[in-house]
Design a protein around this nucleic acid. Structure first.
Lengths: 141, 141
DNA sequence: TCTATACTTGACTATCTTGATCATGTTAAT
DNA sequence: ATTAACATGATCAAGATAGTCAAGTATAGA
Protein backbone atom coordinates (compact mmCIF):
# COMPACT_ATOMS: atom_id res chain seq x y z
CA UNK A 1 0.00 0.00 0.00
CA UNK A 2 2.28 2.72 -1.20
CA UNK A 3 0.52 6.07 -1.12
CA UNK A 4 1.49 8.14 -4.15
CA UNK A 5 0.42 11.65 -5.09
CA UNK A 6 -2.01 9.96 -7.48
CA UNK A 7 -3.84 8.30 -4.61
CA UNK A 8 -3.78 11.44 -2.52
CA UNK A 9 -5.28 13.46 -5.37
CA UNK A 10 -7.81 10.74 -6.06
CA UNK A 11 -8.90 10.83 -2.43
CA UNK A 12 -9.26 14.61 -2.53
CA UNK A 13 -11.35 14.41 -5.69
CA UNK A 14 -13.54 11.68 -4.26
CA UNK A 15 -14.05 13.68 -1.08
CA UNK A 16 -15.13 16.66 -3.14
CA UNK A 17 -17.60 14.54 -5.10
CA UNK A 18 -18.87 13.02 -1.87
CA UNK A 19 -19.43 16.44 -0.32
CA UNK A 20 -21.59 17.37 -3.30
CA UNK A 21 -23.25 14.03 -3.69
CA UNK A 22 -26.74 15.51 -3.41
CA UNK A 23 -26.23 18.36 -5.85
CA UNK A 24 -28.14 18.23 -9.10
CA UNK A 25 -25.23 19.32 -11.24
CA UNK A 26 -22.16 17.12 -11.56
CA UNK A 27 -18.77 18.46 -10.50
CA UNK A 28 -16.39 19.58 -13.24
CA UNK A 29 -12.67 18.98 -13.26
CA UNK A 30 -12.15 22.70 -13.21
CA UNK A 31 -14.00 23.02 -9.91
CA UNK A 32 -11.84 20.38 -8.31
CA UNK A 33 -8.56 21.86 -9.51
CA UNK A 34 -9.68 25.26 -8.26
CA UNK A 35 -10.50 24.12 -4.75
CA UNK A 36 -7.66 21.66 -4.24
CA UNK A 37 -4.38 22.31 -5.92
CA UNK A 38 -4.46 19.34 -8.25
CA UNK A 39 -2.83 19.88 -11.68
CA UNK A 40 -5.66 19.83 -14.23
CA UNK A 41 -4.42 17.42 -16.90
CA UNK A 42 -3.22 15.06 -14.20
CA UNK A 43 -6.62 15.04 -12.54
CA UNK A 44 -8.18 14.07 -15.86
CA UNK A 45 -6.02 10.97 -15.89
CA UNK A 46 -6.90 10.16 -12.30
CA UNK A 47 -10.62 10.53 -12.84
CA UNK A 48 -10.35 8.31 -15.89
CA UNK A 49 -8.87 5.62 -13.67
CA UNK A 50 -11.56 6.08 -11.03
CA UNK A 51 -14.16 5.84 -13.76
CA UNK A 52 -12.67 2.64 -15.17
CA UNK A 53 -12.83 1.18 -11.66
CA UNK A 54 -16.50 2.11 -11.43
CA UNK A 55 -16.13 4.54 -8.53
CA UNK A 56 -17.34 7.60 -10.42
CA UNK A 57 -19.47 8.23 -13.46
CA UNK A 58 -19.01 11.00 -15.96
CA UNK A 59 -21.52 13.22 -17.71
CA UNK A 60 -20.22 14.58 -21.01
CA UNK A 61 -20.96 17.76 -22.84
CA UNK A 62 -21.62 21.24 -21.60
CA UNK A 63 -22.49 21.31 -17.89
CA UNK A 64 -20.96 17.87 -17.67
CA UNK A 65 -18.69 16.62 -14.94
CA UNK A 66 -18.29 13.80 -12.49
CA UNK A 67 -20.44 12.21 -9.84
CA UNK A 68 -19.97 9.38 -7.35
CA UNK A 69 -21.14 6.06 -8.73
CA UNK A 70 -21.93 4.70 -5.27
CA UNK A 71 -23.03 6.19 -1.97
CA UNK A 72 -20.29 7.84 0.08
CA UNK A 73 -21.26 5.73 3.05
CA UNK A 74 -20.22 2.56 1.27
CA UNK A 75 -16.88 3.79 -0.06
CA UNK A 76 -13.62 3.66 1.87
CA UNK A 77 -10.11 4.90 1.27
CA UNK A 78 -9.14 1.31 0.56
CA UNK A 79 -11.54 1.26 -2.39
CA UNK A 80 -9.89 4.37 -3.75
CA UNK A 81 -6.35 3.15 -3.18
CA UNK A 82 -7.11 -0.14 -4.88
CA UNK A 83 -8.87 1.57 -7.76
CA UNK A 84 -5.72 3.60 -8.31
CA UNK A 85 -3.75 0.39 -8.56
CA UNK A 86 -1.89 0.48 -5.27
CA UNK A 87 -0.10 -2.78 -5.26
CA UNK A 88 0.36 -5.02 -2.30
CA UNK A 89 3.93 -4.40 -1.39
CA UNK A 90 5.06 -7.91 -0.87
CA UNK A 91 8.05 -7.94 -3.20
CA UNK A 92 8.27 -10.05 -6.33
CA UNK A 93 7.83 -13.79 -5.77
CA UNK A 94 10.86 -15.87 -6.62
CA UNK A 95 10.81 -18.96 -8.75
CA UNK A 96 11.85 -21.33 -5.96
CA UNK A 97 11.29 -19.61 -2.64
CA UNK A 98 13.17 -20.99 0.35
CA UNK A 99 11.45 -21.37 3.71
CA UNK A 100 13.12 -18.15 4.82
CA UNK A 101 11.76 -16.41 1.72
CA UNK A 102 8.30 -17.66 2.46
CA UNK A 103 8.42 -16.61 6.07
CA UNK A 104 9.45 -13.11 5.07
CA UNK A 105 6.82 -12.89 2.36
CA UNK A 106 4.22 -13.81 4.94
CA UNK A 107 5.44 -11.02 7.19
CA UNK A 108 5.42 -8.43 4.38
CA UNK A 109 1.89 -9.55 3.62
CA UNK A 110 0.89 -9.17 7.23
CA UNK A 111 2.34 -5.67 7.37
CA UNK A 112 0.51 -4.68 4.19
CA UNK A 113 -2.69 -6.12 5.60
CA UNK A 114 -2.35 -3.90 8.64
CA UNK A 115 -2.27 -0.82 6.41
CA UNK A 116 -5.17 -2.06 4.39
CA UNK A 117 -7.22 -2.50 7.53
CA UNK A 118 -6.64 1.11 8.48
CA UNK A 119 -7.69 2.37 5.05
CA UNK A 120 -10.70 0.06 5.00
CA UNK A 121 -11.89 1.66 8.24
CA UNK A 122 -12.00 5.15 6.74
CA UNK A 123 -15.33 5.75 5.07
CA UNK A 124 -15.57 8.61 2.60
CA UNK A 125 -18.67 9.95 4.29
CA UNK A 126 -16.99 10.17 7.68
CA UNK A 127 -14.09 12.04 6.18
CA UNK A 128 -16.38 14.56 4.58
CA UNK A 129 -18.30 15.08 7.80
CA UNK A 130 -15.11 15.51 9.74
CA UNK A 131 -13.72 18.13 7.41
CA UNK A 132 -17.05 19.93 7.11
CA UNK A 133 -17.44 20.24 10.86
CA UNK A 134 -13.83 21.19 11.40
CA UNK A 135 -13.87 23.88 8.74
CA UNK A 136 -16.87 24.28 6.51
CA UNK A 137 -15.01 26.62 4.18
CA UNK A 138 -13.17 23.56 2.97
CA UNK A 139 -15.37 22.26 0.24
CA UNK A 140 -17.14 25.47 -0.67
CA UNK A 141 -14.17 27.82 -0.69
CA UNK B 1 7.07 1.07 4.40
CA UNK B 2 7.54 -0.12 0.87
CA UNK B 3 9.30 -3.46 0.82
CA UNK B 4 11.78 -3.62 -2.02
CA UNK B 5 14.02 -6.50 -3.07
CA UNK B 6 16.78 -4.68 -1.23
CA UNK B 7 14.97 -4.98 2.08
CA UNK B 8 14.03 -8.59 1.44
CA UNK B 9 17.65 -9.48 0.69
CA UNK B 10 18.83 -7.49 3.68
CA UNK B 11 16.47 -9.45 5.91
CA UNK B 12 17.70 -12.76 4.50
CA UNK B 13 21.31 -11.76 5.08
CA UNK B 14 20.60 -10.60 8.61
CA UNK B 15 18.78 -13.85 9.35
CA UNK B 16 21.77 -15.80 8.13
CA UNK B 17 24.12 -13.78 10.34
CA UNK B 18 21.76 -14.21 13.28
CA UNK B 19 21.65 -17.96 12.81
CA UNK B 20 25.43 -18.06 13.01
CA UNK B 21 25.77 -15.44 15.70
CA UNK B 22 27.74 -17.74 18.02
CA UNK B 23 30.16 -19.02 15.40
CA UNK B 24 33.78 -17.99 15.77
CA UNK B 25 34.26 -17.25 12.09
CA UNK B 26 32.41 -14.39 10.45
CA UNK B 27 30.12 -15.10 7.50
CA UNK B 28 31.39 -14.24 4.05
CA UNK B 29 29.34 -12.72 1.26
CA UNK B 30 29.98 -15.83 -0.78
CA UNK B 31 28.33 -18.03 1.83
CA UNK B 32 25.21 -15.88 1.86
CA UNK B 33 24.90 -15.76 -1.91
CA UNK B 34 25.31 -19.52 -2.04
CA UNK B 35 22.56 -20.29 0.45
CA UNK B 36 20.07 -17.63 -0.56
CA UNK B 37 19.89 -16.62 -4.18
CA UNK B 38 21.07 -13.05 -3.70
CA UNK B 39 23.15 -11.59 -6.57
CA UNK B 40 26.68 -11.20 -5.21
CA UNK B 41 27.60 -7.64 -6.15
CA UNK B 42 24.16 -6.48 -5.07
CA UNK B 43 24.58 -8.07 -1.66
CA UNK B 44 27.85 -6.20 -1.25
CA UNK B 45 25.95 -2.97 -1.66
CA UNK B 46 23.29 -4.05 0.81
CA UNK B 47 25.77 -5.09 3.46
CA UNK B 48 27.54 -1.80 3.05
CA UNK B 49 24.29 -0.06 3.89
CA UNK B 50 23.66 -2.31 6.89
CA UNK B 51 27.19 -1.61 8.08
CA UNK B 52 26.74 2.15 7.72
CA UNK B 53 23.60 1.82 9.83
CA UNK B 54 25.55 -0.03 12.49
CA UNK B 55 23.61 -3.28 12.25
CA UNK B 56 26.56 -5.40 11.17
CA UNK B 57 30.32 -5.20 11.47
CA UNK B 58 32.83 -6.39 8.92
CA UNK B 59 36.11 -8.23 9.31
CA UNK B 60 38.47 -7.64 6.41
CA UNK B 61 41.12 -9.79 4.88
CA UNK B 62 41.34 -13.50 4.38
CA UNK B 63 38.76 -15.38 6.45
CA UNK B 64 36.94 -12.11 6.82
CA UNK B 65 33.23 -11.58 6.56
CA UNK B 66 30.31 -10.09 8.42
CA UNK B 67 28.86 -10.45 11.87
CA UNK B 68 25.88 -8.97 13.69
CA UNK B 69 26.78 -5.82 15.57
CA UNK B 70 24.03 -6.38 18.14
CA UNK B 71 22.27 -9.37 19.64
CA UNK B 72 19.60 -10.97 17.46
CA UNK B 73 17.13 -10.72 20.32
CA UNK B 74 17.24 -6.93 20.19
CA UNK B 75 16.91 -6.54 16.42
CA UNK B 76 13.60 -6.39 14.57
CA UNK B 77 12.59 -6.28 10.93
CA UNK B 78 11.76 -2.63 11.46
CA UNK B 79 15.39 -1.93 12.32
CA UNK B 80 16.42 -3.59 9.08
CA UNK B 81 13.79 -1.86 6.96
CA UNK B 82 14.73 1.52 8.37
CA UNK B 83 18.43 0.85 7.93
CA UNK B 84 17.74 0.16 4.27
CA UNK B 85 16.08 3.54 4.00
CA UNK B 86 12.45 2.51 3.72
CA UNK B 87 10.67 5.79 3.72
CA UNK B 88 7.47 6.57 5.49
CA UNK B 89 4.98 6.54 2.69
CA UNK B 90 3.05 9.62 3.54
CA UNK B 91 3.34 11.44 0.23
CA UNK B 92 5.23 14.71 -0.17
CA UNK B 93 3.97 17.54 2.03
CA UNK B 94 2.51 20.45 0.14
CA UNK B 95 3.45 24.04 0.74
CA UNK B 96 0.03 25.10 1.98
CA UNK B 97 -1.95 22.01 2.96
CA UNK B 98 -5.70 22.38 3.16
CA UNK B 99 -7.63 20.79 6.03
CA UNK B 100 -8.55 17.94 3.67
CA UNK B 101 -4.87 17.45 2.83
CA UNK B 102 -3.99 17.35 6.50
CA UNK B 103 -6.71 14.86 7.31
CA UNK B 104 -5.50 12.56 4.55
CA UNK B 105 -1.86 12.90 5.56
CA UNK B 106 -2.83 11.90 9.06
CA UNK B 107 -4.55 8.80 7.71
CA UNK B 108 -1.60 7.83 5.51
CA UNK B 109 0.58 8.23 8.57
CA UNK B 110 -1.72 6.04 10.60
CA UNK B 111 -1.66 3.33 7.92
CA UNK B 112 2.13 3.44 7.73
CA UNK B 113 2.31 3.22 11.50
CA UNK B 114 0.26 0.03 11.41
CA UNK B 115 2.80 -1.59 9.10
CA UNK B 116 5.66 -0.38 11.22
CA UNK B 117 4.09 -1.93 14.28
CA UNK B 118 3.94 -5.30 12.57
CA UNK B 119 7.59 -5.13 11.54
CA UNK B 120 8.62 -3.92 14.99
CA UNK B 121 7.03 -7.02 16.50
CA UNK B 122 9.18 -9.39 14.45
CA UNK B 123 12.44 -10.06 16.27
CA UNK B 124 15.29 -11.51 14.26
CA UNK B 125 15.88 -14.21 16.84
CA UNK B 126 12.29 -15.42 16.66
CA UNK B 127 12.46 -15.63 12.89
CA UNK B 128 15.60 -17.71 13.03
CA UNK B 129 14.10 -20.05 15.59
CA UNK B 130 10.98 -20.43 13.53
CA UNK B 131 12.82 -21.31 10.36
CA UNK B 132 15.24 -23.59 12.18
CA UNK B 133 12.47 -25.60 13.79
CA UNK B 134 10.42 -25.69 10.63
CA UNK B 135 13.28 -26.89 8.47
CA UNK B 136 16.78 -27.02 9.89
CA UNK B 137 18.30 -27.52 6.45
CA UNK B 138 17.53 -23.89 5.84
CA UNK B 139 20.57 -22.14 7.17
CA UNK B 140 23.07 -24.96 6.81
CA UNK B 141 22.15 -26.24 3.35
C1' DT C 1 57.50 -11.65 1.51
C1' DC C 2 54.24 -13.48 -1.63
C1' DT C 3 49.71 -14.83 -2.61
C1' DA C 4 45.03 -15.91 -2.26
C1' DT C 5 40.92 -14.53 -0.08
C1' DA C 6 37.65 -11.25 1.05
C1' DC C 7 36.00 -6.80 2.13
C1' DT C 8 35.90 -1.38 0.30
C1' DT C 9 34.71 2.13 -2.56
C1' DG C 10 32.87 4.56 -6.27
C1' DA C 11 31.09 4.78 -10.62
C1' DC C 12 27.98 3.12 -13.94
C1' DT C 13 23.73 1.21 -16.51
C1' DA C 14 19.17 -0.44 -17.75
C1' DT C 15 14.45 -0.56 -16.70
C1' DC C 16 10.33 0.89 -14.33
C1' DT C 17 7.41 4.01 -11.91
C1' DT C 18 5.76 8.48 -10.91
C1' DG C 19 4.09 12.83 -11.97
C1' DA C 20 2.94 15.13 -15.09
C1' DT C 21 1.70 17.67 -20.08
C1' DC C 22 -0.29 18.20 -24.80
C1' DA C 23 -2.98 17.69 -28.88
C1' DT C 24 -6.97 16.20 -30.79
C1' DG C 25 -11.48 14.25 -30.81
C1' DT C 26 -16.34 13.73 -29.05
C1' DT C 27 -20.62 14.95 -26.63
C1' DA C 28 -24.36 17.79 -25.20
C1' DA C 29 -26.65 22.23 -23.83
C1' DT C 30 -28.10 26.69 -25.57
C1' DA D 1 -23.30 26.70 -34.69
C1' DT D 2 -20.94 27.59 -30.69
C1' DT D 3 -19.11 26.53 -26.52
C1' DA D 4 -18.19 24.03 -22.29
C1' DA D 5 -16.62 19.91 -20.78
C1' DC D 6 -15.22 15.14 -20.94
C1' DA D 7 -12.32 11.20 -23.77
C1' DT D 8 -8.24 9.28 -25.51
C1' DG D 9 -3.66 8.43 -26.66
C1' DA D 10 0.94 9.92 -26.99
C1' DT D 11 4.78 11.72 -24.90
C1' DC D 12 8.30 13.16 -21.43
C1' DA D 13 11.50 14.21 -17.50
C1' DA D 14 13.09 12.80 -13.11
C1' DG D 15 13.85 9.61 -9.68
C1' DA D 16 13.93 4.98 -7.74
C1' DT D 17 15.10 0.18 -8.26
C1' DA D 18 17.89 -3.63 -9.38
C1' DG D 19 22.04 -4.90 -10.54
C1' DT D 20 27.01 -4.69 -12.50
C1' DC D 21 32.03 -3.56 -12.81
C1' DA D 22 36.60 -2.25 -11.87
C1' DA D 23 40.28 -1.02 -9.02
C1' DG D 24 41.93 -0.80 -4.36
C1' DT D 25 43.01 -2.45 0.54
C1' DA D 26 43.62 -5.55 4.39
C1' DT D 27 44.78 -9.97 6.51
C1' DA D 28 45.96 -14.97 7.09
C1' DG D 29 48.97 -18.34 5.94
C1' DA D 30 52.79 -20.60 3.23
Amino acid sequence: MTISARVHYAALAMAELAARQDDIAPVSIREITDRHGVPGPFLVQILRTLRAAGLVESIRGSHGGYRLAADASTLTLLDIAEAMGCQENGCRTEATPTPADEMLQEIWREAAEASRDVLASKRLIDMVDQVKHGDSSMFYI
